[in-house]
Simulated scan of single mutants.
Amino acid sequence: MDTEAMAAHKKELRSELRARRAEAYGGPAGTAHRARESRLLLERAAALIAHVEATLTAAPAQPVLVAAYHPTPTEADVMPLARHLAELGAHLIFPVAAGRELDWVSWDGSSPFLDSPGRGFGKEPSGSRLGPGALAAAALVLAPAVAVDRSGTRIGHGAGYYDRALTAVRADAAVVAVVHPGELLEAGTLPREEHDVPIPAVLTADALVSLVTIDGSWAPRPAIRS
């Protein structure tokens, strides 16, 4: 499939997946369903929480950096987990719109978020920007996605922000995409291009899942097992 055909295929898939998400999580009933799942998602993240706690204990003088994101109204709600990690003492950073690259801003666990000028972004914390390189120090990255398949292929919102950002993440960091249960798809469902960064783990309201590739050609980063 050539580049133009691949882009068209991804655009069609993205539209289909977003439509399913809007149907399941839009409106009052969908909002209530999402809120229930957000509580379950926090429970399923027990291994991630334990990982952060252990890292904090091992090096109490060193900041433990966790990258999260403020979800759009129908994305999986990672905010209860982000608040909990901040309460434990982790240093939370959130992405902010900054042209072609993601920039990052610290969040203290309680300050309000502001509307983002970026298309497809959730809200943003206010404060000084840390620069795109801030992600390189993260011990845990909670990444948004439209969907992920069990071969580790992630499809995002189409701008390539996270594919570019994740190339800077250190090798021992835990990278976890957060999606709704129905958005973890069968292996090989999503097309992968050379620039698409594979995802080693997925967190949903059902489970924390470590992923492997179909053909073994990709060695995943260390994943936190539930």
Score class of each variant (00 low, 15 high):
residue 53 E to W: 01
residue 44 R to N: 11
residue 111 S to D: 15
residue 62 Q to L: 12
residue 113 F to L: 14
residue 25 Y to E: 05
residue 64 V to K: 05
residue 51 H to G: 10
residue 88 L to K: 08
residue 30 G to T: 13
residue 64 V to D: 01
residue 54 A to E: 01
residue 87 E to C: 12
residue 79 M to K: 08
residue 73 P to T: 00
residue 29 A to E: 15
residue 72 T to D: 13
residue 110 S to V: 10
residue 34 R to M: 10
residue 49 I to S: 03
residue 98 A to Y: 09
residue 55 T to H: 15
residue 37 E to Y: 04
residue 92 L to V: 02
residue 93 I to Y: 02
residue 90 A to E: 00
residue 97 A to T: 10
residue 93 I to H: 02
residue 24 A to S: 10
residue 25 Y to K: 08
residue 49 I to C: 05
residue 60 P to Y: 03
residue 112 P to C: 12
residue 69 Y to G: 06
residue 25 Y to A: 12
residue 99 G to R: 09
residue 31 T to V: 12
residue 108 D to G: 07
residue 81 L to V: 02
residue 48 L to Y: 00
residue 63 P to M: 11
residue 68 A to C: 13
residue 35 A to Q: 13
residue 35 A to R: 12
residue 113 F to S: 03
residue 40 L to P: 01
residue 101 E to N: 12
residue 84 H to R: 11
residue 117 P to G: 08
residue 107 W to V: 00
residue 85 L to T: 06
residue 114 L to E: 14
residue 115 D to T: 14
residue 52 V to P: 01
residue 85 L to M: 01
residue 97 A to P: 14
residue 98 A to H: 15
residue 34 R to F: 06
residue 53 E to N: 01
residue 104 W to F: 15
residue 30 G to W: 03
residue 83 R to P: 00
residue 31 T to G: 10
residue 111 S to V: 11
residue 105 V to G: 05
residue 46 A to R: 14
residue 116 S to G: 04
residue 61 A to H: 13
residue 32 A to E: 14
residue 56 L to V: 03
residue 27 G to T: 13
residue 24 A to M: 13
residue 56 L to G: 07
residue 49 I to P: 04
residue 29 A to H: 10
residue 71 P to E: 00
residue 88 L to W: 09
residue 116 S to P: 00
residue 27 G to N: 09
residue 60 P to Q: 01
residue 79 M to P: 00
residue 89 G to H: 04
residue 92 L to D: 03
residue 67 A to I: 08
residue 54 A to N: 03
residue 104 W to I: 03
residue 104 W to D: 06
residue 80 P to M: 12
residue 42 L to S: 02
residue 27 G to D: 13
residue 73 P to F: 04
residue 81 L to H: 00
residue 63 P to V: 05
residue 60 P to W: 00
residue 109 G to T: 14
residue 58 A to M: 11
residue 72 T to V: 10
residue 60 P to F: 03
residue 60 P to T: 05
residue 71 P to H: 00
residue 115 D to L: 14
residue 52 V to A: 04
residue 117 P to T: 03
residue 71 P to S: 04
residue 99 G to A: 10
residue 55 T to P: 09
residue 61 A to N: 09
residue 92 L to S: 00
residue 39 R to D: 11
residue 49 I to T: 13
residue 41 L to P: 02
residue 39 R to H: 15
residue 107 W to T: 04
residue 92 L to Y: 04
residue 70 H to Y: 12
residue 87 E to P: 13
residue 43 E to Q: 15
residue 25 Y to S: 11
residue 48 L to H: 02
residue 37 E to A: 15
residue 44 R to Y: 07
residue 42 L to E: 08
residue 27 G to Q: 04
residue 26 G to H: 06
residue 51 H to K: 09
residue 35 A to K: 10
residue 38 S to G: 12
residue 39 R to W: 01
residue 117 P to H: 04
residue 61 A to R: 12
residue 107 W to A: 06
residue 34 R to H: 04
residue 53 E to Q: 09
residue 89 G to N: 01
residue 42 L to Y: 01
residue 113 F to M: 08
residue 49 I to M: 03
residue 58 A to N: 08
residue 103 D to M: 11
residue 98 A to L: 11
residue 52 V to M: 02
residue 50 A to L: 12
residue 111 S to H: 11
residue 72 T to W: 07
residue 84 H to G: 02
residue 109 G to D: 07
residue 74 T to A: 08
residue 114 L to D: 15
residue 119 R to D: 15
residue 111 S to Y: 07
residue 41 L to V: 07
residue 52 V to R: 03
residue 66 V to H: 04
residue 95 P to F: 01
residue 29 A to Q: 14
residue 53 E to V: 00
